[in-house]
Simulated scan of single mutants.
Amino acid sequence: MSQTVKGVIARAKGAPVELVDIVVPDPGPGEAVVKVEACGVCHTDLHYREGGINDEFPFLLGHEAAGTVEAVGEGVTDVEPGDFVILNWRAVCGQCRACAKGKPWYCFNTANATQKMTLTDGTELSPALGIGAFVEKTLVAAGQCTKVDREAEAAAVGLLGCGVMAGFGAAVNTGGVGRGDSVAVIGCGGVGNAAIAGASIAGATRVIAVDVDDRKLAHAKDFGATHTINSKTQDAVEEIRALTDGFGADVVIEAVGRPETYEQAFYARDLAGTVVLVGVPTPDMKIELPLIEVFGRGGALKSSWYGDCLPSRDFPMLVDLYRQGRFDLDAFVTEKIGIGDVEAAFDKMHGGDVLRSVVVL
């Protein structure tokens, strides 16, 4: 039988979120119902509320989540009731052209639940990133559940479901940061600090944090930044070059998603260096670069989708690093809040007062 639980929706563009009753159906073939234990408040959820993703309102918000599998549908074998899982929005299909080429982290046909969660009047909900986890229980495709160590703290490891994985993977998977590399990260929110932590863990010897907020730069040092630059008062490109013997960084990660910061990243890298865009731009943004500079500098200009992660490979590894004390996921959790506090968390996000607010259920 279906269940009725409490969840947070965005009913209309720009309107405050609402805590309402949500109807969750029993899992069908290939699906699972997960009892959500914690879910981070990500900027992507705010994008949904503001209509920046699409206009398929009402949205069931939340996607950076961890919880316990309550029930599974027919044909599900990878997880079972009682498993502690992190939810992901890349449930690889194993059959598309990316998977067939042995690159499942690019899967072009990822799965979501077939059935819809609804309001009590039958109105279908659009779950954020195919998850929808500001809710006591959620329905997902079973492939969106990645089993990890039960002893891990849900509020911390749930953040691997989006922002932290995106940043860490941008450095390690997309940027290929290795021992002895110099790395600059522009934008030191949750994603940028995860990139800093990833670069440090991967063996980078110089990790340069760039932001306009001294509070964020102080946080960046906690995650492994060896140098900081406030680009409000300093020329970021000149300072990065000065810190890298005049050459520029081997890898520059842009975690803001704006033309001006991308241009900084482009000019702050060494010859044959790599630029990684992991910040999410809006559809109207454009950038213009001299084509001779694109050619003459060589290297690579990359975009990082979800940190080019493979959840079944990367989530357990990062949880192990966390459990070993080598990756401080707890440091990303600024505050733990209730399910009715999401709107206030958005306000704090706007003010730059938090890395992550985490809803604990």
Rank of each mutant, 00 (worst) to 15 (best):
V5Q: 03
V8M: 06
R11N: 13
R11W: 02
R11T: 06
K13H: 11
V17I: 11
E18R: 12
D26H: 13
P27G: 09
E31C: 11
E31Q: 13
A32I: 02
V33G: 04
E37N: 12
E37F: 09
C39E: 04
C39V: 09
G40I: 09
T44Q: 07
L46R: 13
H47R: 14
E50G: 00
D55N: 15
L60F: 08
A66L: 04
G73C: 12
E74N: 13
G75Y: 01
D78G: 13
V85W: 06
R90M: 14
K101V: 02
Y106N: 13
C107Y: 02
C107N: 03
T110Q: 08
A113T: 09
M117Y: 04
E124C: 05
I131S: 07
A133K: 10
A133M: 07
L139S: 07
G143K: 11
C145V: 00
R150Y: 10
R150Q: 14
C162R: 04
G163S: 14
G163C: 11
F168T: 13
N173T: 08
N173K: 11
N173R: 11
G175L: 04
V177D: 01
G180V: 09
C188M: 12
V191P: 04
G192H: 04
I196E: 01
G198L: 11
G198T: 05
A202P: 03
G203L: 10
A204L: 10
D211T: 06
A220F: 03
T226M: 08
K232H: 11
Q234G: 02
A236V: 07
A236N: 05
E239H: 12
I240G: 04
I240P: 00
G248N: 08
A249K: 09
V252E: 06
I253T: 06
I253R: 07
V256K: 04
P259L: 10
Y262F: 15
D270R: 15
D270K: 14
T274P: 06
K286G: 07
G296Q: 00
D308E: 10
C309E: 12
S312C: 09
S312I: 14
Q324V: 08
G325H: 08
R326V: 03
R326K: 14
D330G: 01
A331V: 00
E335R: 15
G340V: 02
D341I: 06
A344H: 08
A345S: 15
D353S: 14
V354A: 06
V354R: 02
S357M: 00
V358I: 10
V359A: 05
